[in-house]
Structure formats: structure tokens, C-alpha cells
């Protein structure tokens, strides 16, 4: 029975994927079907996002019910309280109203921006410790590129634009970095095609059995 269900799931994934792929190649014949399947998939993706939020609520709700007192209970309580209040406020006022924008601007923007600001400190700290951990020609090349790009990204204070630095930065970004990025993109595209084909052939089943 389990094996039959597993094969059935794989067949569903293969059939849906093949129809959409054929719709790319034969738009006149299968264009409408492809559009319908993609439309259904978009709505189901929204359901999947909703599922993630439901799971978040369940996890933190379960943490609240544990008898042992701990700071984690307080954190979960704060999370659930802020979630409920946000749903109430945005739900009543609509997502693009003044209060919804105020909520995002007041809570989400400062916290996320501050996290990114802390990231700057961490990145500088890790870059300065890199060579002491691993002395290798690629590390030297990496750090050299970082320093040159940083110095050439903007004119220097009290000095102004240094032509050689800005030219070097531009050359680094438009020639070797372009070549490397193109190679990476080609590799990512090939990997994505291979992974997609494996799913369409039933070899990989990320949806589970």
C-alpha cells in the first residue's frame, strides 16, 4: 500500500511537470493547460506559506504549554502576542493602510536594518581573521580583491577619487568577476536543470513518500 502511494505521488509530480514543460515547447497545443496548472500551483504556494505560519504558531504554542518555566516560554509568548496583534491590526486596517505601513516601518524596518548593521561588524571581524586561520594563495587573492573593491567603490575622504583604485575596481567587477559569475551562473543553471529532470523522472522525491 505504501509503495503504491509512493508511486502514485511520483506519477502526479511527473505528469504535472511534463505537461508544464511541454507547454513551454508547444504553447499552441498545451498553453492553456500549462496556464491553468501554473495558476493552481501559485495558489497552492500561498497555502504552503500559510502552512508555514500555522506550524510556527503550533511550535510556539506547544512551548507555552510546557510546565517548566524558562525564558523560551517568555520569548514564545512575545512572538505569539506580536503575531496576534499584527493580524488584528493589519486585518482590520488592510495591508496598505497607514497603520499597516506604520507597523512595518516601526517594527520590521529597524530590526532588520540593525541586524544588517551588526553583520557589517561581523564581516569585518571575520575578514581580518581569515589569513591567521588559513594562509593560502586563494585567501590572499580573495582579501586583496575585497580591499581593492572597497577602496575603489567610492572616493576617499579628504583624498577624493583615486583613478587607479576606481579603474581597478571597475576592471575587477567587469572582467574577472564577470567571468567567474558567468561560470557560476552556468553551473547553477545546469544544476537546476539536472535537479528538475531528476524530479520529473521520479528519481528525487523531495515531497516525501
Amino acid at each position: 500500500m505504501k509503495k503504491a502511494l509512493s508511486i502514485g505521488n511520483a506519477l502526479i509530480a511527473i505528469a504535472a511537470g511534463v505537461l508544464v514543460l511541454l507547454g513551454y515547447l508547444l504553447p499552441e497545443l498545451l498553453g492553456t493547460l500549462r496556464t491553468l496548472l501554473v495558476q493552481w500551483a501559485v495558489i497552492l504556494a500561498a497555502f504552503a506559506l500559510l502552512l508555514g505560519i500555522i506550524n510556527l504558531v503550533m511550535v510556539h504554542g506547544k512551548r507555552l504549554t510546557t510546565p517548566k518555566a524558562s525564558l523560551n516560554k517568555l520569548y514564545s509568548a512575545v512572538l505569539l502576542l506580536s503575531l496576534i496583534l499584527t493580524i488584528l491590526l493589519v486585518g482590520i486596517a488592510t495591508p496598505t493602510s497607514f497603520w499597516s505601513v506604520w507597523l512595518v516601518s516601526t517594527f520590521q524596518v529597524p530590526v532588520e536594518a540593525s541586524l544588517l548593521a551588526v553583520l557589517a561588524v561581523v564581516l569585518v571581524y571575520s575578514a581580518s581573521r581569515l589569513l591567521s586561520r588559513r594562509l593560502h594563495w586563494t585567501s590572499l587573492l580573495f582579501l586583496g580583491t575585497v580591499v581593492l573593491v572597497l577602496l575603489g567603490m567610492a572616493p576617499l575622504l579628504f583624498i577624493g577619487e583615486v583613478p587607479i583604485l576606481s579603474s581597478l575596481r571597475q576592471w575587477l567587477a567587469s572582467v574577472p568577476a564577470l567571468a567567474g559569475a558567468r561560470g557560476l551562473l552556468l553551473g547553477v543553471a545546469l544544476g537546476a536543470i539536472a535537479t528538475g529532470l531528476r524530479i520529473l523522472m521520479g528519481v528525487d522525491r523531495p515531497y516525501g513518500d
Binding site: 502511494l5 502514485g8 505521488n9 511520483a10 502526479i12 509530480a13 511527473i14 505528469a15 504535472a16 511537470g17 511534463v18 505537461l19 508544464v20 514543460l21 513551454y24 496548472l37 501554473v38 493552481w40 500551483a41 497552492l44 504556494a45 504552503a48 551562473l185 552556468l186 547553477v188 543553471a189 545546469l190 537546476a192 536543470i193 535537479t195 528538475g196 529532470l197 524530479i199 520529473l200 522525491r205 523531495p206 515531497y207 516525501g208 513518500d209
Partner: peptide, 24 residues
């Protein structure tokens, strides 16, 4: 799981088409 399989199948085909015609 069957619904998730449908979603994954359509998503995989979309990614293949995009990677092939959009990048490769």
C-alpha cells in the same frame, strides 16, 4: 503528499524552463 507532489512537479518544470531559456 500528493498535493505537494503536484506543486513540486510544476515548480520543477518551471525552473527547468527558466534555467534553460533564461540563463543557459
Amino acid at each position: 503528499t500528493p498535493v505537494l507532489a503536484f506543486l513540486v512537479g510544476v515548480g520543477a518544470a518551471t525552473v527547468i524552463g527558466g534555467a534553460l531559456f533564461g540563463t543557459l
